[in-house]
Amino acid sequence: MDKLRSLEIFIATCDSGNFAAAARACNTDPSTVSKAIGRLEVQLGLTLFQRSTRQLRITTAGQCYADTVRKILQDLASCEDELRHLNESPCGTLRINSAACYSHLYLRPLLQGFCQRYPDIKLEIEINDSHVDIIENDIDVALRTGFVKDSRLVARRLSPMDFLTCVSPQYLQAHGTPRCADDFQQHRWIGFRIKETQQLQPIFLPNDKGEYLPYELEPSHITDDGEAMAHMCADGLGFAQLPHFLAKQGLQSGVLVSLYPYFRPPQPESGVFAIYPKRDYLPAKVRVFIEFITASLESAGESANHTWAESWTPVINFSRFSI
């Protein structure tokens, strides 16, 4: 029998005054109660109760012990109630880790509405492009792009990651529009270096059937920052293949155009994810945050299997472009 159970039996015995009543209160039998009290007395080296055939009387040492044990059990019950409330109610500090581009462009605009709906949640937001260990760093939820391969984590896909080949209208006016793959060799391209691997992000271009195939191009410029890549593209420094969340503002404002329809990487496990540690009881603050983000994305035309890029009209059709 564990110590906590023995202490509960001890307090029940103090309150009831006999083993039989204590047994009923603890849903056990008098023999178990007697043995539990006996074990406590052996552990303490003290007599907790004076026993006779007619009555059970607590000793002075027993009364002192009971006062302390009662307070410990009450404090433990209060702590458990408080923790249960924190886990079941959307309150407390929510620690979020997010990729820089996604945070600035997608997460930040939603924070005011989230805080208005859940005023008892305090946000702590870490923004970086490193894949930090969210368990080791005590992160409640992370927003990440790419792949998730950690069995300790739950990865809920918020959306696929669709890519669009973008360029500024001014660049096209100055340098013309490529009509075939060879034409791209005469144009400038902005490459993206992946920080985790230090490799360049591969480029995929469509053939006349709409099938995207990998294509090798020598970049004129290289950056490892997504927002810088989008701005460089908008400033006319060349073509760039941008993920949908980076391309959205530029395309909607007209500072960028998409040369042809979106490309979705063939890996089914890729996308944008909300990632959190596996646990039996998900804290309410994490649950409502993910629900809020999901609902907000859906209102903007994005879900686990779709993005707004699917309905975007490119400036070139497949029939006019061939690798």
Rank of each mutant, 00 (worst) to 15 (best):
A66H: 15
I190H: 01
I194D: 03
P202M: 03
I135G: 00
Q201D: 11
P206G: 05
D162T: 15
L83P: 00
G38M: 07
A300S: 13
D2G: 07
P243I: 04
P119T: 07
D75Q: 12
I139D: 01
F163D: 01
R287M: 10
C64E: 14
F147M: 11
Y118I: 00
P109D: 04
I37T: 08
L73Q: 10
L56Q: 10
T197I: 15
L105P: 04
R70M: 09
I125L: 11
P266K: 13
Q55G: 11
D235M: 12
C166E: 04
Q198Y: 00
P265E: 10
F273D: 02
Q186D: 00
F263M: 10
S130W: 07
I194H: 00
D280V: 07
A20M: 08
I139H: 02
S52M: 10
S31P: 00
H306I: 06
T13F: 08
E269C: 06
I134N: 01
D129H: 11
E136V: 12
T28G: 12
T313W: 03
R51V: 02
L4G: 06
E211S: 14
R320V: 04
P283E: 00
K209H: 04
R108K: 12
S311K: 14
D67R: 13
L123N: 01
E80T: 10
C115V: 11
S31C: 06
P266D: 10
D81L: 12
R57P: 03
Q249M: 08
R264I: 05
R57S: 05
P109H: 03
H221Q: 13
D133F: 00
G17R: 14
S299Q: 13
Q249R: 07
F204W: 14
I72T: 09
Q55T: 12
Q186Y: 01
L40C: 08
I9D: 02
Q116I: 02
L259Q: 10
R193Y: 01
V42D: 13
H231W: 15
K278G: 02
L40V: 15
P160T: 00
E291W: 04
L56Y: 03
Y262Q: 05
H187D: 06
V286H: 01
L46K: 09
